[in-house]
Amino acid sequence: MPVNPAPGPQRPGIFRKALMWWGTRPLLQVFIIGFLVVSLYFLAVNVIESMRRIGVTPGFDFLNRAANFEIGESSIPFQAGDTYIRAIIVGLLNTLKVSVLGCVLATVLGVAVGVAGLSRNLLLATAVRWYVEIIRNTPLLLQLFFWISLTSAFPAPRQASAFLGSIYFTNRGVFIPGGSIDGLSVSGSTVFAGAIATFAAILFILKRSRALNITSTALSFTAVVVVVAAGLSFGGAQLNVDIPELTGFNIRGGSSLSPEFAALLTGLVVKFSAAIAEIVRAGIQSVNKGQWEAARSLGLHPGQIMRLVVLPQALRVITPLTTSSYLDLTKDSSLAVAIGYPELVSVINTTANTTGQSLEALMILIGTYLVINLSVSVLMNEYNRRVALRGNGR
């Protein structure tokens, strides 16, 4: 006999959805929202009137005016007389530079310290524990003052000794080897961009075919390097390696990191590597001991167990907490204003002081940090979703 399935629960109508959204006291919520809107309106009117009273025209027209100040360190050319919007872009690039490098280096150091903290070597584990506790319980601003004082205590370039034969720590900055590409033609640039696109396509195909591993990635990267080298040679380009050398009273060549940038980057990396180390330790310890025993029964050595079995499962615990560390690192880079590094907050502060547009400058600062942090959150949440799906797959 045919069986009629029981009807499922009916979906709520529009009126029911509205009641669910507003809750049990919709009139109270409407009153609160209306009160907030009216309060913000009167606040905005009073602020605009106060600005006009002191001779400040509200708006963002000041961004196209000339900025009569210099910026000590910039990733793009800037000089006094350029527009304020260009100055803000310079500060934004400086913030992004130290934030991206800080996240990468803090992750590498934090993972290494976290794994070392679980070592059976009592001396190593104790040293890691002291490192984590001292760094985590010391204010970041105090650490930045320590690092900037340490860079000031470095010898002058003439008395500096080469570390590893090509790295100089001086009171004028840290000098490291650099490289440049001379004579890169249009065809060479096209080949270079095509090689990057090819590498991305290979990784995508390998991932779709479930053949993505360290060996295949290394082979793909080697192939791309060969293609890039051939493309550069075909385009008439030449790769030059620039080694810093002591010449006269200064060091010439290579790339240099200013004392302020080096101190800020070191402070951020050391501070947040300790936090990430604790996250990694907790994530590893969250993996069931049976996973370790099963991996040992297969004949895997400890390095393989950690890389192939434990860390992939621990990522489901590590990733969400690491996202918070990345966001905190990006926001705490604003403390660079205390040691003289010209990042976004420093440039915005100078802009507000020279133009009088404090409210507009503050709005730009808040909006910029909001966009940066939301972008980081979206990327990390997407990665966390992929890790969680892969971990829960059958």
Results as ranks from 00 to 15, higher is better:
34 G>H: 06
216 S>I: 04
123 L>T: 13
122 L>E: 13
300 L>I: 05
92 L>I: 08
292 W>Q: 13
360 E>Q: 14
228 V>Q: 04
329 L>F: 09
100 V>N: 04
218 A>C: 04
97 K>M: 12
247 T>S: 07
128 V>M: 10
62 F>P: 14
165 G>T: 09
223 A>L: 15
232 L>H: 06
131 Y>D: 04
77 P>I: 01
317 V>D: 09
265 L>F: 11
121 N>V: 14
23 G>R: 02
16 R>I: 11
371 V>R: 00
118 L>I: 12
228 V>F: 01
287 V>N: 03
136 R>M: 05
156 A>S: 12
5 P>L: 10
170 T>K: 05
125 A>V: 02
314 A>G: 10
107 T>C: 12
335 L>N: 04
321 L>T: 09
301 H>C: 07
254 G>W: 02
104 V>C: 02
227 V>L: 15
51 M>H: 08
302 P>F: 00
182 D>G: 00
176 I>T: 15
142 L>V: 15
333 S>P: 04
120 R>C: 06
386 R>H: 07
226 V>H: 00
149 S>V: 02
312 P>G: 03
53 R>T: 11
30 V>T: 08
59 G>F: 05
298 L>R: 08
184 L>N: 14
38 V>S: 13
149 S>D: 01
307 R>A: 11
77 P>Q: 01
351 T>V: 14
250 N>W: 03
354 T>A: 02
36 L>A: 14
70 E>S: 08
233 S>G: 11
129 R>D: 14
210 R>W: 12
141 L>V: 11
217 T>C: 07
296 R>H: 03
367 G>E: 03
77 P>A: 01
212 L>A: 11
264 L>Q: 05
88 I>E: 00
385 R>N: 09
278 E>T: 12
186 V>I: 15
72 G>K: 07
210 R>A: 13
180 S>G: 04
178 G>C: 10
86 R>T: 12
66 A>W: 00
106 A>V: 14
288 N>S: 15
65 R>T: 13
353 N>Y: 00
103 C>I: 15
42 F>W: 09
241 V>H: 02
329 L>T: 13
240 N>P: 01
124 L>D: 11
330 T>I: 15
73 E>K: 07
225 V>E: 13
178 G>T: 08
176 I>F: 08
254 G>I: 06
384 N>L: 01
314 A>Y: 11
335 L>W: 05
87 A>S: 10
153 A>P: 07
221 F>H: 04
194 G>V: 06
91 G>Q: 03
55 G>H: 11
62 F>G: 14
348 I>Y: 01
51 M>N: 11
97 K>G: 09
72 G>Q: 05
224 V>I: 08
318 I>K: 05
243 I>D: 09
215 T>I: 08
213 N>L: 06
342 P>Q: 00
315 L>R: 08
64 N>A: 08
138 T>C: 10
129 R>G: 03
45 V>P: 02
280 V>D: 11
293 E>F: 13
134 I>Y: 04
55 G>C: 13
393 G>A: 15
74 S>K: 02
78 F>R: 02
282 A>E: 14
46 N>L: 10
207 K>T: 13
184 L>D: 12
245 E>V: 14
16 R>K: 13
364 I>V: 08
234 F>V: 09
101 L>D: 03
311 L>M: 15
207 K>R: 12
64 N>G: 07
72 G>T: 13
298 L>Y: 06
